[in-house]
Nucleic acid binder design. Structure first.
Length: 497
RNA sequence: GGCGCCGUACCCAAGUGGCUAAGGGAGCAGUCUGCAAAACUGCGAUGCGGCGGUUCGAACCCGCCCGGCGCCUCCA
């Protein structure tokens, strides 16, 4: 039985979807006005893994993740650059999709855009007007918070408390400072859609209500997003959705913790901002390998905890993966006395599978799940010393691959993996710290597989002749090209790059 | 001012009432090896920020204190 922490109730609850066997989930995506950063990566990854796990558990999942494609920030950016706002939207939609692909985060089933749901949005606002929850103010329309007696139940705030320390500049025209915009009239030159209240664009919160209801129905199972969205975004979504439909909105509210830098929130104003693009560009490893390391790093902390990013922590994740991929490589090689540990392996795989379900069912604890994989790594390595049949080795690899698929880990082949250290170069645009040297230092020309095999054969011939000087010279030569040699007991060698 | 979160070994981190406090990284020692590398084995918190309290029993519950952070404004 899957248990999920529900922000609404502040506790872990047994997950019971509205319609047995199916899950409808909505996650707040991004406003496409800039490069995506690690925080976006974490949120996207967390809910990607949740979706995978729900499917793995047998649910038919409908996953909706929106793009906010009309918003003040987009317009501001467009004005700064002197380009049409649609160009900003187009550009950052592309970079978001590129970054998600690199992270191995699959698209949602439906990825609606605000600009494509104007009829739903205006219809919903009209319903709120008709029911007395909203009022016009010149060309704008506001939601009247006072009409919702339950307002504040998600974020556990009372409207009175909110006013006490509010740093908001209150628009004096509003009936109540808490009231928020459903519709904003447009100024000259701004994008505008026709509405009963004149040309304008939707407020931020209404689009998520309109689009989630449009694609998932008035009541659905899971609504997710970053912690910071709890208030006011999700609070407002609940208020307007329930007011419009008279029904419960989302049943389970899930929120992921922040990515921090040096224990502080990552933000542009603090200047500690890491874009996903940055990380991939600066990594010394391939995109696939960097993506895996990043995923592993992001998933070794429980999704609700804050997570501190540093180069070192990603390097540690990479090293941890190296030991796993080292095992996968050995699993592709014949091992000693065939067949000895089959029964033990069977038990170990069963144990992993059970433990994986147990910890993932507990509020999808990916950190504990990864620990289970590490436990299996140790067991399989021990069994490999006594010998495993080809069938058992394939079974072990398959256990990592099939369960790992939920986390998006362990999917690469040995040829695709890189055993070299993951290092972060200085940022390409940083000219102050010798970064040009880093950038321009050429990668040593690599050998082809055939060349390596030839040198290895020569080296092992030399070892048989006890010509260790020659053998070590070859090893040094290969090492200079990023190739590591591991000698097996039988006189043959494996190599890694 | 209001609401809330965090503090577990050198570093990261799971665990939130009861088996020896997961797992990873780094380190040290050993096995193996011509030497390495890898793998394996062992070592590593008598204690979970501090002090009290509740309990037969607490890292986990309660109170106070110390330190750090978030939200209350756009924010994943």
């Amino acid at each position: 039985m899957l248990k999920l922490y529900n922000t609404m109730t502040g506790s872990k609850e047994a997950f019971q979807p509205l319609v047995p066997g199916t899950v409808r989930m909505y996650v707040c995506g991004v406003t496409v006005y800039d490069e995506s950063h690690l925080g976006h990566a974490r949120s996207a990854l967390v809910f990607d893994v949740l979706r995978n796990y729900l499917q793995f558990s047998g649910y038919a999942v409908t996953f909706v993740k929106n793009f906010t494609d009309v918003d003040d920030k987009i317009l501001t950016r467009a004005a700064q650059e002197g380009v049409p706002w649609t160009e900003i939207v187009e550009r950052y939609l592309c970079t978001y999709r590129r970054d998600m692909a690199r992270l191995g985060v699959a698209p949602a089933d439906i990825e609606p855009k605000a600009t494509e749901h104007m009829p739903e949005i205006t219809t919903m606002i009209e319903a709120l007007m008709a029911k007395g929850h909203a009022y016009r103010l010149d060309g704008d329309v506001y939601f009247e918070v006072r009409t919702d007696p339950a307002y504040g139940r998600l974020s556990k705030r009372k409207p009175e408390d909110l006013l006490a320390g509010a740093r908001v500049e209150v628009d004096e025209r509003k009936r109540n400072p808490m009231d928020f915009a459903l519709w904003k009239s447009s100024k000259a030159g701004e994008p505008a859609w026709e509405s009963p209240w004149g040309p304008g664009r939707p407020g931020w919160h209404i689009e998520c209500s309109a689009m989630s209801i449009r694609h998932l129905g008035e009541t659905f199972d899971i609504h997710g997003g970053g912690m910071d969205l709890i208030f006011p975004h999700h609070e407002n979504e609940i208020a307007q959705s329930c007011a419009a439909t008279g029904k419960e909105f989302a049943r389970y509210w899930l929120h992921n913790g922040f990515v921090q830098i040096n224990d502080e929130k990552m933000s542009k104003s603090l200047g500690n901002f890491f874009t996903i693009q940055d990380i991939f560009e600066r990594s010394s490893c391939s995109e696939q390998v960097t993506g895996d390391a990043l995923r592993y790093f992001l998933l070794t902390t429980h999704y609700r905890s804050p997570l501190d990013f540093s180069d070192v922590s990603v390097q540690e994740a990479k090293r941890a993966l190296d030991s796993l991929y080292g095992l996968f490589q050995r699993l592709e090689e014949p091992s000693g006395e065939e067949g000895q540990g089959e029964a033990q392996l069977e038990r170990a795989v069963t144990r992993l599978t059970e433990a994986f379900h147990r910890v993932m069912n507990d509020d999808f604890n990916t950190a504990a799940a990864i620990a289970q994989f590490q436990l299996l790594r140790g067991e399989v390595n021990r069994l490999l010393e006594t010998g495993l049949s080809a069938r058992a080795r394939a079974q072990a690899r398959e256990a990592f691959r099939s369960l790992g698929r939920v986390l998006g880990l362990f999917q690469l082949s040995i040829k695709e993996w890189e055993f070299k250290e993951l290092e972060f170069r200085a940022r390409p645009d940083d000219r102050t710290q010798g970064s040009r040297l880093d950038r321009e230092r050429p990668e040593p020309p690599s050998f082809t597989d055939e060349q390596i095999e030839r040198q290895l054969a020569e080296r092992n011939e030399a070892r048989r002749r006890k010509d260790f000087a020659r053998a070590d010279a070859i090893r040094t030569e290969l090492s200079a090209h990023g190739i590591t040699i591991e000698d097996r007991p039988d006189g043959t060698s494996r190599w890694k790059r």
